[in-house]
Design a protein around this nucleic acid. Structure first.
Lengths: 222, 222
DNA sequence: TCGAGTTTTCGAACATGTTCCGAAAGTAGC
DNA sequence: GCTACTTTCGGAACATGTTCGAAAACTCGA
């Protein structure tokens, strides 16, 4: 469906869709059906367009997801960050974590493009800046940020995958491994016993984050 | 190709393959062609068997990978762990990290089944036991282990994905984002400038691990 | 020997992301 | 109106993991 556009100065077959339109349709699917339903073919159908057409406006699906993240990052409420630099780091990282936890697939994309778009850069800036304000060199500050990022990514991915597994009802290996546990070889684990699932289900992100940041800031300068 | 087996007491059509055979073939492919080449169809071809046949011996591909990991974990050299409990934690976690870093896909599976098989449990035991030896309660020890696990998983996945991206030669976003950076809004990042790629390429796993463990062990008991 | 029951095999099919390439639909010059 | 050029479209195809159902191959009992 070529729009009625007059002579637009452009040459060649007029596009039947555009990047912004694609992103908008993707958002619609995302908000309406959830991120599991966001597939290339479904997105194309939503636009009334062939599936392969999308690849003329978007490099690949990862590219699309990165763009979408940028959009959602834009309308993320930007909280008042604490004045204390250490608390600023914790607050910014927590925002990262909470924003991404709802959409684990996005994290898998971000593990490739570790920086978000410009509208999410303030979180990175807050962490790196906070570290510098704590007396770290820029190099050390980046290292701190990366470590926090690793921890955050790992937490989200592990929890997401574990949740997906729990949804299917096949018995999980870890729920049975403790039964025949040799207490002489694994004394600590045997002491935990079947409380493992319960313990690993707890949400300890912020506490772990605090410990990590404390540990990183306590490192003597090299 | 049914084997000449005599009356084996079993009923039904005799299996043309077995779980151990499948695992062995998978190992052959893994060692010969790398983990990217380990696909269901290729594995079936290696066995001279229909692809769907595998699903009678293996729940799904994740199941297969978990089994394979168990096998590789078995012949993992078990290092002499240091006597100092804190160093024991670091050493065990480092073994985990280094063993998995070579096969990132495996990590994606383990994010679902966070515990390895019995032959890898000694690492978990070392971390949890080390934490208890440092005066933590079992609950806190598990929390420490989990945090270390998150960090380790995140590090491996981020590095793996980043490496895969670098292999393709499409320009990465993060290499361009720093050029037009608003120094007034992002002072710290602007100060880093184009050194970002270099800084994030550094391997800082062990140093981060130490900081994390120190921070976790320094937490006051609740 | 023949039917019943049981277990395994495997081709067809589906949904996914993605690439290729010919066709479609425009503009520009004649 | 016609040809050349340019850009976009989209169907066919491929590889991936996985499900389904029908057929095959075996043992057991009558």
């Amino acid at each position: 469906m070529p729009r009625p556009a007059g002579p637009s100065g452009r040459i060649g077959r007029p596009p039947s869709t555009s990047r912004p339109q694609i992103l908008e349709a993707a958002r619609a699917i995302l908000d309406r059906d959830g991120w599991e339903k966001l597939t290339v073919r479904r997105l194309a159908a939503e636009l009334g367009v062939g599936a392969t057409t999308l690849y003329h406006h978007v490099r690949d699906k990862d590219d699309l997801l990165v763009q979408l993240l940028e959009y959602y990052a834009e309308r993320l409420p930007r909280p008042e960050l604490p004045a204390d630099p250490r608390e600023r780091i914790v607050a910014a990282a927590t925002v990262m974590h909470d924003s991404l936890a709802a959409w684990p697939q996005a994290v898998e994309v971000l593990t490739a493009d570790d920086l978000l778009g410009e509208s999410a850069l303030w979180m990175v800036e807050a962490v790196v800046g906070g570290a510098i304000a704590c007396g770290r060199t820029p190099d050390q500050a980046v290292e701190l940020y990366r470590n926090v990022w690793y921890y955050t990514v790992g937490e989200i991915l592990v929890r997401a995958r574990a949740g997906r597994r729990a949804a299917e009802d096949r018995p999980r290996y870890r729920d049975t491994v403790f039964e025949g546990l040799d207490a002489s070889r694994f004394p600590s684990l045997a002491a935990i016993g079947d409380r493992w699932p319960e313990l690993t289900a707890r949400d300890t992100y912020v506490r772990g984050l605090r410990a990590f940041v404390d540990g990183l800031l306590a490192q003597e300068s090299r």
